[in-house]
């Protein structure tokens, strides 16, 4: 019986038979449909996904004319900080544009939170100004709402992660609500500074990382940013496939935020005024790539169908069907991209 090379969610290589791959595709689709209460992929789509997974060739590509654009998260700081190349960030922007062929890039600080950036924004704006003079591609500024940083001892509000285990629910909820106000203020402030430095957009990245209050902060900040700077593009990137309910009762526009999956997250994002939504589906390291990508495509297809704004799917380490490994294998990355674009109908990555 012939076998196909593929991978587990942690990146390790495995061989699977055609029957095993088909079975995992079906299970991944069913899991997403069950959790998200969304439709399954069609049989035709699952067959095509099988074809993508088993295509010969280490890398695969989309059909001509189906190419999509990409945005990034902390793109320019990955060269300078993560790859440890002694390069000023506006130079990294130029490398992204001219050498790597990036459609856009965002400048981010190593301390990737709006609370931290607020203190040093006067040192961040010159980087943006210089980049804007030299770059042709859109250059955004990116950071996280990171609500956890507003808790004691790092910030002014009580720590809900300590209050919740003590069953101090009301106090924990009040602390989160207070943190939202601080986070919104910081995001709007940084966005304003970046707007005045010439930024094309602001990336509110990983909204919901600290739960539903964190997601709410991203939405409220977007509203205010759009009110003050209507021309500044806003991208809201999610943190996970559903919004974790650390508060549980917070609402936006009459909809409870906790527990929302991408196809519902995007509707609130639109309502707040964002221009691009970054959908996230988490990779399960203990499941196979066929299972993970089938599940991801099912969620993404439902999200794109529901969306009136472009959806850029997060495809990187541990998300979007990509394995949780520091160097995501190119076979998996290109197959995930092709599936998300051709079956999921993603507007970007």
């Amino acid at each position: 019986m012939s076998e196909f090379f593929t991978r587990m969610g942690d990146g390790s290589g495995i061989y699977m038979t055609a029957a095993e791959i088909r079975e995992d595709i079906l299970k991944g689709v069913k899991e997403a449909a069950d959790h998200g209460k969304i439709p399954d992929l069609t049989q035709e789509e699952m067959d095509y996904l099988f074809d993508i997974i088993t295509m010969p060739g280490n890398i695969v590509g989309v059909e001509r004319g189906r190419e999509v654009v990409s945005t990034s998260d902390s793109g320019s700081c990955k060269m300078t900080y993560h790859a440890n190349i002694a390069m000023e960030r506006s130079m990294a922007v130029m490398v992204s544009e001219k050498v790597l062929g990036a459609d856009s890039i965002d400048i981010g600080n190593m301390d990737y939170s709006y609370k931290a950036v607020k203190q040093i924004v006067h040192n961040e704006t010159p980087v943006m100004e210089l980049a804007q003079l030299n770059a042709v591609i859109p250059v955004l500024y990116g950071s996280m709402p990171n609500l956890g940083l507003y808790t004691k001892p790092d910030g002014p509000v009580e720590n809900w992660s300590e209050l919740l285990p003590l069953a101090k629910i009301d106090e924990a909820c009040a602390a989160q609500e207070e943190a939202v106000e601080h986070a919104v203020r910081d995001m709007v402030f940084v966005a304003g500074e970046m707007y005045e430095a010439g930024a094309d957009g602001i990336n509110l990245d990983t909204c919901g990382a600290s739960g539903d209050a964190d997601f709410l902060a991203g939405l409220l900040a977007t509203e205010k940013i759009k009110e003050k700077y209507p021309d500044l593009g806003v991208e809201i990137g999610a943190a996970g496939e559903f919004v974790l309910g650390m508060h549980g009762k917070l609402e936006y526009d009459g909809t409870r935020i906790a527990g929302l999956y991408p196809h519902k997250q995007v509707k609130l994002t639109e309502k707040a005024g964002a221009n691009i939504f970054g959908a996230v589906v988490n990779t399960n390291t203990n499941k196979t790539f066929p299972w993970n990508i089938a599940r991801t495509v099912t969620f993404v297809k439902a999200c794109v169908e529901a969306a009136e704004i472009p959806v850029h799917v997060n495809v990187g380490m541990g998300v979007g069907g990509i394995s949780m490994s520091e160097i995501p294998p190119i076979d998996v990355v290109t197959r995930a991209d092709k599936a998300l674009i051709e079956i999921g109908k993603a507007d970007g990555l």
Binding site: S70, G101, D103, P138, N275, I309, P310, G348
Partner: peptide, 23 residues
């Protein structure tokens, strides 16, 4: 989409400025 090697930056500008879907 390959940025300024093609028209990736221009397409992205329309998404960012006008919330246009890819097509």
């Amino acid at each position: 989409m390959s940025g300024i090697r093609t028209a990736g930056d221009l397409v992205l500008r329309m998404q960012l400025a006008k919330s246009m879907k890819i097509d």
